[in-house]
Nucleic acid binder design. Structure first.
Lengths: 151, 151
DNA sequence: TTAAGTGCAAAAACTTTGCATATTT
DNA sequence: AAATATGCAAAGTTTTTGCACTTAA
């Protein structure tokens, strides 16, 4: 589990005149407790919190996801669906990548250190502060190759 | 320019019981004539065709973009905006990657052969037919690092 | 001829915004 | 106390779908 605590979040927020609220804390905690490799859309998260008896409005969720992605706390993933999905942004060495079938959207996660290194180098060379590095590979999975008339 | 002709498209479509239509041909040609590095959203394409005096309905455009992405003819890019964008899918060695600022969405394109090789290897190992391989790096650009209270 | 494709308009899905109220600092 | 954050409802965007008509094979 990652060592990003609520008080670290508070410190970072306050530094810019922003505030720590129960909602932000709940959302951070939710992502931290999510099993590795899971990722939630805004709506997923909203439903999850509803069911957990700790509801947060969809608009706050959207605002918070965007905020935390811009702070580097969440990774924003765009798999082939049209919704964005989020997961906690662990330190770079933990970043994983995705191999996706463009027909059935079957997705495989994998890691690759060489890719991460290349990404970090590129970011640094351009003076960017690196937040996330994801390789997105699209292809046709073995199953879909067999069926001649796919979607 | 790439060697994917209308008749190659026709052959591939017919193989699956699909058809070559003037709209599909126009859309293919439009992407082939697009300067390298450009990419269009569905709406961009619609406007472009309108202005060119050869309009195609938005729904057909959406249907065609999805179709061609699934055939591997177009690359589907998800930069940080919420619209998907498309460009012609040149052979793998021409694939380029993106370094994006999460605050201002400033985007830098770059190439990296090692990343492409790693991607191809991963796809093959899982039996996927490789269509596209893109590295997406998110970070904070030098400018936005300087401004303490960004969006 | 007939099954697939198009365009239109309507619906659905996803995201953002204005504003009154509540909360953090 | 002052400024930020929330929730709601409404609006804005982007994408999908149903259907009658057209067209490629």
């Amino acid at each position: 589990m990652v060592a990003y605590t609520a008080s670290a979040l508070k410190a970072e927020l306050n530094e810019r005149g922003w505030r720590l609220t129960p909602q932000r804390e709940t959302i951070l905690r939710t992502f931290q407790n999510l099993p590795e490799g899971n990722h939630l859309s805004a709506e997923d998260l909203c439903d999850l919190l509803d069911k957990a008896g700790d509801p947060i409005s969809l608009s706050t969720i959207y605002r918070t996801l965007k905020l935390m992605a811009r702070m580097g706390i969440l990774r924003e993933l765009e798999l082939s669906e049209s919704q964005k999905r989020y997961e906690i942004n662990q330190p770079a060495p933990h970043h994983h990548h995705h191999l996706i079938c463009v027909r059935c959207t079957k997705t495989i996660e994998f890691k690759n250190d060489a890719v991460l290194k290349a990404g970090a180098k590129t970011a640094i060379r351009s003076g960017y502060h690196l937040l996330d590095c994801q390789l997105l590979i699209q292809g046709i999975c073995p199953n879909c190759q067999r069926s001649l008339i796919p979607v």
